[in-house]
Design a protein around this nucleic acid. Structure first.
Length: 441
RNA sequence: GUGGAUGUAGCUCAGUCGGUUAGAGCGCCUGGUUGUGGCCCAGGAGGUCGUGGGUUCAAGUCCCAUCUUCCACCCCA
């Protein structure tokens, strides 16, 4: 009687061909984060349920995995973390003496109980890569986050990415200018956010279906359709006359844009988009999100914004904060779909094949010296025929095989076989060790 | 959470109106090669037809239930 091996839907095993690119990208993330002065942090996978509830909005609340361990006492109920931002807020509130601004990065999995759709890069367990700056209220902190994200997207050579930017206060002002109260904000934003998917008519229908009056729905759409972009927002300013908060939000966006460009981000990657809303409820200021036009079915690869009120929920006094989440799994999926080449399932560069067992110790010695020279090297552990050893190298994608038998050992010449290019050459062992790059490209 | 599909060999799938021992391609193993992978040839292993029940002389095929996975929506990374 064997146990059926299976995986919970929405979770995955990552095989070597998945992990090798993932490790590469993670290394780039860490290097870039530290280049901007962000320091690493980790938090536990499980948190008290009350830490997480009420921070993400109604939708998000439903998607939190609750643990049933000792859950009879409400104060002790546990849950798996839903994101990395709320745990950060909790952490900051528990260390109020930290020197601010606190710039941290965090690379850990999170869990969400929604319906998986691998094709869209949507899973129940996935890796988030967060950068956040706590304790800086100005636009410089926002701009640094956006610029860092843009930096990474460029470094990963994701073509044509666009960072859409908007402002929660500006959205609130537009809703108000359309004659609606703050209670309609969520409904309107929810509808408007889908513009590129369901079109203007769809947005209108959805607003009406949720009880927004026709006049107000039309007013919202008219405002959002204003032809504005960074550096050209006069039309919007005119419509916000007398609305102090709205004008302030708009000015903040313009300043943010200037600073982002000042940090070296090419203008084509940054776009003012009044229809960007984002569902998480803790955002209070500028918000942003990145999608790839070449992969429209995939959700956002990266998203973030300012949340000046979240830490206060734990601390009792507000500390301003801004951050972004990079969706590592989606980025990897995107890279695999856009650049399917360069697949590898092993880090090994060289296999030292053993033609006869009498040369075993010599093969081991050669492998050892190659490793000392920094060449990732394997030996066929259980031997077998040379044919089988070569087949192993072929199937694993090991690019080079050194064939070492009695003849080679006697003359000091080994055969270096190039699996992908084909062909092989004789090489002097000492020459090989002195300049391995000449033989193993 | 809403709606629609799916399930036959390790993978992708075929299987007629319900009818005898369930097939193909790819992959895998062995051999053809004594010290050389891929290509070719020969042979071989591998299936409770997702699961449970029902109809029938007879079910991979029809019915019901259930599980699984996938797609779209919602929302997000």
């Amino acid at each position: 009687m064997t146990i059926q091996p299976r995986l919970y839907n929405g979770t995955r095993d990552l095989l070597p061909q998945d992990m090798l690119p993932k490790e590469d990208v993670l290394a780039q993330f860490r290097a870039s984060f530290q280049l901007y002065g962000f320091a690493p942090v980790e938090t536990p996978a499980m948190e008290y349920l009350e830490i997480l509830t009420g921070k993400y909005g109604d939708e998000g609340n439903q998607l939190i995995y609750r643990l049933d361990y000792r859950n009879e006492d409400p104060a002790r109920r546990l849950a798996l973390r839903y994101d990395l931002t709320v745990p950060l807020a909790r952490l900051v509130a528990m260390h109020p003496d930290m020197p601010l601004p606190f710039k941290r990065y965090q690379l850990q999995p999170v869990w969400r109980a929604d319906r998986p759709q691998p094709h869209q890069g949507r899973y129940r367990e996935f890796m988030q890569c967060d950068i956040d700056t706590v304790g800086a209220q100005g636009r410089a902190a926002d701009a640094e986050i956006v610029a860092l994200c843009a930096d990474l997207m460029r470094r990963l050579e994701l073509p044509g990415f666009v960072i859409r930017i908007n402002h929660r206060q500006l959205l609130a002002a537009l809703v108000e200018q359309a004659g609606l109260g703050p209670e309609s904000e969520a409904t309107v934003c929810g509808a408007v956010d889908k513009l590129d998917k369901i079109g203007a008519d769809g947005v209108r229908r959805e607003m009406l279906a949720h009880g927004i009056p026709v006049a107000a729905a039309d007013a919202v759409q008219e405002l959002l359709n204003l032809p504005v972009q960074f550096g050209d927002t006069q039309l919007l300013q005119d419509r916000l006359q007398g609305h102090e908060a709205g004008l302030k939000a708009l000015a903040e966006l313009e300043e943010l844009h200037r600073l982002v460009l000042g940090l070296g981000v090419p203008a084509e990657h940054v776009k003012l988009d009044l229809t960007l809303a984002r569902g998480l409820s803790y955002y209070t200021g500028p918000i942003f999100e990145t999608v790839l036009p070449s992969l429209p079915h995939m959700g956002s690869l990266m998203g973030g914004g300012r949340y000046d009120g979240l830490i206060g929920m734990f601390l009792g006094r507000d500390i301003p904060a801004v951050g972004a989440t990079l969706g590592l799994d989606r980025i990897l999926t995107a890279l695999a779909q856009l650049k399917p080449h360069a697949q590898r399932s092993t880090p090994t560069r060289v296999l030292v094949a053993r033609a006869f067992s009498e040369t075993d110790t010599q093969a081991l010695a050669l492998a050892g010296r190659l490793r000392q020279a920094g060449i990732p090297t394997e030996i066929p552990l259980d031997g077998g025929k040379l044919k089988k050893q070569l087949s192993y190298a072929d199937r694993k994608g090991i690019p080079h095989v050194v064939v070492l038998g009695p003849d080679e050992w006697a003359t000091g010449q080994v055969q270096v076989k190039h699996m992908q290019a084909g062909g092989q050459e004789a090489a002097d062992v000492e020459a090989l060790l002195a300049a391995p790059a000449r033989f193993f490209l």
